[in-house]
Amino acid sequence: MSNETGVSYSRAIQALKERNYTGAAGFLKAAENQFADNLEFRILSATAGLLLAVKEEINKLENSPR
């Protein structure tokens, strides 16, 4: 693991701890090449991506005219 990738991963974890999912998605993206074969990382990344999509959908529904 290169230092830079390690730092991205570290920041992603920190962002997830703070529930900053948008920030985490960016850092996970930066680290994804290095962790392509890491199942745990892929689950983490996919879950964060799904959560962002769900939040976006909730936001749309809550702000749509009734």
Binding site: V7, L16, R19, L44, A48
Partner: peptide, 28 residues
């Protein structure tokens, strides 16, 4: 409900993370 479940799942996943990110911060 799905949002809450996913957040809770991520929290548990992060809690079980080993010390690697701390090490990366220390390296930085």
């Amino acid at each position: 409900k799905l949002e809450t479940t996913l957040e809770s799942f991520l929290d548990r996943l992060i809690a079980s993370e080993p010390g690697q990110p701390d090490f990366c911060r220390e390296l930085e």
